[in-house]
Each structure stands twice: as structure tokens, then as C-alpha cells.
Write a protein that binds this DNA or RNA. Structure first.
Lengths: 196, 196
DNA sequence: GGCTTTTTCCTAGAGCCCCTAGGTGAAGTC
DNA sequence: GACTTCACCTAGGGGCTCTAGGAAAAAGCC
């Protein structure tokens, strides 16, 4: 009997496709084996276990995401760069919900440490913020704010959390405007303990 | 043989406790049955299925969350109210990660529609924003921005997403300050299409 | 108290999933 | 052609969800 010709890469490719179609939590080794016309036990030659597969999916998707962001941000600065970053981020999350969900999972730090995607993400994010003239620790605070807002927005939108009839794209534009405002008027060291 | 005395409410109570201890996705009907000293099939008298249980958990946790927020916000306005809201939100998410995770799941709109928790949440959120003098649709945009940021922040923090040594509490305070700034200088109808 | 009804819990079993152990045959290496 | 490697196999254990149908406790009724 001929072989299916499975490799870890092809497996991950099929996995992220399945994630976008059926949802990340429905990506199962059994389902993938079925898709390849193979018994599920056979996949353990290519992948250690389910967690291993998910980690690979996360790294794949994370790389794709930062590639698209990098392409969008290239050659822009200031608010223009912020809007491009935000747009690329949200577009990826909406086009590839399963892949995006994969990027959210908790990953062993040791595996993540030498991931080029993580380093590129940091470079691009901090580079984008350069225009706002922030120094540490404000820079880290700003990065966290942006990540949280982008991520939270996409999660809520994808999960159907925005029930109001207001168009989400317009809301999103406003949110990006608001973040730009916040970065421009970044609260500098004033009163951490308001005099109450 | 005596009965365990299970009710749907006691089941949900045990479920959210288990969620905080072992993680939301590890809350299983089998595990709950074990905890009650009962066979798993017995639980289907009290709960329709796993999804039903999760929905009940979400409603329970959502109610608890908005109760704590309401208590924190009571009697405050403006930035004070915003900080109290944010603090109560994050505290709940960190103290009860499993319960908080339960609030994130997708819930059938028809079930959610007549949930008092949702109505209260809307009331309190919009009430808190009254001080900033926004009108629709900016109000909705602002609510979405706040929800997204709070939610994203808590998810990232709980998931270990903030690796930098910077103290998260201080970053959070800054994020709240930044949101206050954004709400105060809310971008009003300027240029939706920047002249590029 | 007895009687009936309802409810709670049971056993049995099907189906899907993850994962391990150990075997077989196909593809490359010399 | 023999040898090694590796892709895939069967067999099987264990966990989970959920259904169907039965038994016994609890609650309601006289």
C-alpha cells in the first residue's frame, strides 16, 4: 500500500486549515488522520502529541501574522504605522480565526525564546512606537496597552461579543484613533497615588 | 443508599470552584461526578449537557463580576469611577481565572437576552462614561474600546503573555490613565479618511 | 400510616478522543 | 541485493460525552 507522504510541516498546514474551517479546539489528531486517510496513531511519528501540534500551529500562525503586519507597516511611521499595524492585525484575526486562536495559546517559554517571530514582533512594535518618543518603562506599558486592546478587540468581535448595530470597522477606526491620542498625550509620571 | 443531594445550583457552584482550581477547560462532567461521589451519567438529570453547564457557569460568573464592579464603582464618577471599574474587573479575573474564563465563552443570544447581569453591565458601563460627555455612536465605540482593553489585558496577563520584568500593576495603572486620556480627548468626527 | 408519583441515581453501552507498544512493509543507502 | 531507517499498521487502555432504560429514595396525597 502506498504511503500518504506526511511530514510535520504538511501536518501543521492541514491543521491550521482545519482550525480556520472548524475552529481551533476542533483540531484533533483523529480528524487530521482522517483527512490524510491514515490511522490516528500514525501521526505520532511526526508530532509528539496534541500539545506539540498546537505549539507548532501557534508558531506557524504567529509567523504569518507578523509577516503581514511587517508588510503593512513597512515605510510608514506615526499614526499611519499604527493604523497599518492595527488593520493588518485585525484582518488576519478575522480572515483566519482558527490560526489566530492558535496564537493565543500558552507556549513554553523555552520554545518561544528562540522563535524569530517573537523577536520580529518586538522589533516592529517598538519601532512603530518610536515616533511617540516614549522611554522605558512607558514603552513597555504602551506595548502592553496596544497588545491588550488589539487582542481583546479581535477576540470579542470574533466571539460575537459586539451586539450593538454600530459598524465594527468604524468602531475599530475610532479605537485606533483613541490609542493614537493616548500615545500622543501619554500620562507622564504624574500622580500615581491621587490625593484622596 | 443515601442520595448526594445534587441540584443544578450546587453543580454550578462546584463547577466554578473546579474551574478556578484546575482551569475552565478541565471542568468535566466526569470530574464533577467524582467530586460528588456519583456516576457521571447521573448529572444529566440536573444539566442538559456540557454546554448547558458551561452556559450556567458563564451566567454565574458574569453576575459575580458585575456585582463586584458595581460595588466598586458606586458613588464614584469620572476617572475615579473608571479606575474603580478597571480595578474590580482585573481583580476578579486574577482571583478567579476559571470563572473569568467562563465569562468569555460564546453564549446563545436568546439565553443572554433576558440575563439581568448583561443589563446591569450595560447600565453601569454607560453610566460610568456619562462624565466624558460622549454621544452615540461614540459611546458605543468607547464601550467597545474599554471592554476590549480590559479583557485583552486580563487574558494576556493570566496567560503569562507579559514577559518583561515591568510590574504589571503599574502598567495597568498607566493603561487606565491612558484610556482616561483617550476618553477625555475623544477623537471627534475629524478625518475618517486621512488625505493620503 | 399506605399509596402513587416524581425525582435521583444507577448500569450498560456506544462513540470519539489521546496515546503507547510493538510489528510490517516501503523507501532510501551501500 | 542486503541493510537501515522510517512511515504506517494493529491492538489496546483509559478518559470523556451522552442516551436508554431500570430501581430506589423522596415527596405528595388520601
Amino acid at each position: 500500500m502506498p504511503r500518504a507522504g506526511i511530514t510535520a510541516d504538511r501536518l501543521v498546514t492541514a491543521a491550521v486549515e482545519l482550525a480556520d474551517e472548524a475552529g481551533f479546539e476542533n483540531v484533533t489528531l483523529s480528524a487530521l488522520a482522517r483527512r490524510f486517510g491514515v490511522k490516528d496513531a500514525s501521526l505520532y511519528s511526526h508530532v509528539k502529541n496534541l500539545q506539540d501540534l498546537r505549539t507548532r500551529m501557534a508558531l506557524r500562525a504567529g509567523g504569518e501574522l507578523i509577516d503581514r503586519i511587517a508588510a503593512a507597516v513597512a515605510g510608514r511611521a506615526g499614526k499611519d504605522a499604527l493604523a497599518a499595524f492595527a488593520g493588518a492585525y485585525r484582518a488576519y484575526a478575522l480572515e483566519h480565526p482558527g490560526r489566530y486562536a492558535a496564537t493565543q495559546i500558552r507556549i513554553d517559554q523555552s520554545l518561544l525564546a528562540d522563535s524569530p517571530a517573537l523577536r520580529r514582533t518586538a522589533e516592529i512594535t517598538y519601532g512603530m512606537l518610536r515616533a511617540y518618543g516614549l522611554d522605558e518603562p512607558d514603552l513597555t506599558d504602551a506595548v502592553r496597552l496596544l497588545r491588550a486592546t488589539f487582542h481583546g478587540y479581535c477576540v470579542l468581535e470574533a466571539g460575537g461579543g459586539f451586539g450593538a448595530p454600530r459598524d465594527v470597522q468604524q468602531s475599530w477606526n475610532r479605537a485606533v484613533d483613541a490609542l493614537h491620542t493616548a500615545l500622543t498625550h501619554w500620562p507622564r509620571e504624574e500622580n500615581d497615588h491621587p490625593h484622596e
